[in-house]
Design a protein around this nucleic acid. Structure first.
Lengths: 338, 338
DNA sequence: CTGAAAGCGCTTACAG
DNA sequence: CTGAAAGCGCTTACAG
């Protein structure tokens, strides 16, 4: 690349010290210099196409105006939707964002955190994978500002912005009950992740409230590395036997995608024989043949709030804030051929 | 944040110069120092949890190991899919990536470029919007390494990795002809973007080759800001009149999504009365009720190649490379209810 | 061969 | 009030 012009170049041309140029261009100590001189400095800087070297500034000020974003997988629409909101919000405050994907792997997440800290990001927004508590504790010890999104650990007093997972699962199940389901199953990830536990807790609580059968057999857990066949098997077994389920809750968008794909090949009729509610929205479900319901997460609010909390924490070192947002239960009508 | 330990701290503890510590930790000039001393330095660094400050290193070395990625919209699955590949590829080479979305706006793209250059990224991967030629020319003048993806400007001798848009459109149309279409329309964006012009050129050439009607009326252009109603109107008018189309090419995933959504509400039968081929794949089409075809872009290859070319350009300042990759015509069977 | 100094491009506390 | 120096944390060319 071409050598860029520096403060020194401008200073020499105008015949002042680099310090003065810095003051003028940063609009600091304006009273130190005559309007005329300030004008000449600004003019020269513009003529020479001066742009401040943020790396040098960062080294001195110990501030990079960069935030690190760690999601599960940027290629997933949930993550990339969030990333877009955060980008826009950060940009408004002159922050730039570095992203990376942890693949639901705590070890990888730790390495990403190290890399981002080496690059001196001012703070982090993280959707933490299971078993990453110690990385977060480390961040707290180092007093690195960060806020969690989507997931959090109930025992860790960290900033977070997540869904009201318990409440939304409860609402989803009550919807199924209301449309007539009496035996409701759930397919979820086999994981310690608290937000998914909460969804399960909401599922169970709603069933209990309405005195419907609660049983371990009704809840099927699949590996978070998502094996399609595991989901298909889970559906098969829930739908077979003497008492097949007539309602089903999918606890995440990837499960819903694979599940609905499979269900659409089965003879079972949605929603008459099987009513469905799923967490997260995804374009993929746009064309599913039958009506079903999903719990829409308030992504814009989640992203914006997370960014705000982070910037506040960076700039003021504010207290811990924990937010569980309400989602929306959407009743999706099919785009059916006529 | 906590004050981090610096080379100086290690140097003091061990009783050597910071220079020596730097040499040892970077495995340079290994012969300058006894194995024993090197071991002690490394040990002390580990004990003190030393991590090198990349900002300081960057200022000195004029290298950030960061690449800037500018896409149309990171929330779009095409962009985020590409972003994921690039992330992985970059990570393997110790590079980190800053992303931003240009919203198909050349002015915004220019501002993003400035921001990224101020932060001294080592190079850029850009999916350029229409009318952004001058920003690219500026990059060339500044000798900033960059490679374009997805789009490019035929008159600008830049690195790029894109699809063989002409060839794939040609192939798509020949497919429609082969399944019996005789009057084939196209819905595309109203834009100067060369890659879309190429798709149109391929469409026309295939029709001509097979002596099928070519007419301006058969091609409908909608604004790239995507108004759903514009697409619906285009479809209405192509399907109405004395000679409705029996085949249709959608030139981008967003058009296909809106188009198929609308078509699924119409009485027209896909594929018997109307056969469809679309550019790009998107999960959204997973559940469309009827068979149709789409042109799958080789995202992994595109992302990997773009990253390789960029790193090569950064490290060796290599010659200009331009690649048009072949895609794949996929015949999609519906997941139909039985 | 090796140690100590210079310098990357900024910002700002401090001396005069 | 204002100018010139120190220093952020590194790397590496250079003097001895």
């Amino acid at each position: 690349m071409e050598r860029k012009v520096s403060l020194k170049d401008i200073a020499q041309k105008v015949g002042v010290s680099t310090a003065l140029v810095s003051y003028v261009l940063n609009n600091k100590r304006e009273n130190r210099v005559s309007k005329e001189l300030a004008r000449r400095i600004r003019e020269t800087a513009a003529e020479m196409n001066y742009r401040t070297n943020q790396v040098a500034r960062s080294l001195k000020t110990n501030k990079t105006y960069t935030i690190g974003l760690i999601v599960a997988d940027i290629a997933n629409s949930f993550s990339s939707g969030l990333a877009r909101i955060i980008e826009d919000e950060a940009e408004q405050h002159q922050y730039t964002v570095i992203y990376s994907s942890n693949d639901e792997n705590a070890h990888k997440c730790g390495k990403l955190i190290d890399t981002l800290l080496d690059r001196k990001v001012d703070g982090l927004i993280i959707a933490p994978p299971a078993f990453s508590e110690h990385q977060l504790i480390y961040l707290q010890q180092q007093r690195v500002p960060f806020v969690l999104v989507d997931r959090y650990f109930p025992d860790l007093p960290t900033n977070y912005v997540a869904l009201d997972n318990y409440g939304m699962a409860f609402k989803g199940i009550e919807h199924l009950i209301q449309v007539g389901c009496r035996r409701i199953g759930m397919i979820t990830y086999k994981t310690e992740l608290h937000h998914l536990q909460e969804r399960r807790r909401g599922y169970t609580a709603a069933l209990k409230k309405h005195r419907l059968p609660v049983s371990k057999k009704l809840v099927r857990e699949v590996d978070i590395k998502l094996e399609t066949t595991a989901i298909e098997n889970a559906i098969d077994s829930l739908l077979s036997g003497e008492e097949p389920v007539d309602g089903l809750l999918f606890s995440a968008n990837n499960i819903a995608l694979a599940g609905l794909k499979y269900i659409s090949t089965l003879p079972v009729k949605v929603p008459d024989q099987l009513a469905i509610v799923s967490f997260d929205e995804t374009e993929a479900l746009e064309f599913f043949y039958a009506p079903f319901a999903y719990i829409k997460q308030p992504l814009p609010e989640m992203g914006r709030l997370a960014t705000h909390l982070l910037l506040e924490s960076i700039e003021k070192g504010s207290a811990t804030t924990q937010v569980n947002l309400e989602g929306e239960l959407i009743l999706k009508k099919p785009y059916a051929p006529r």
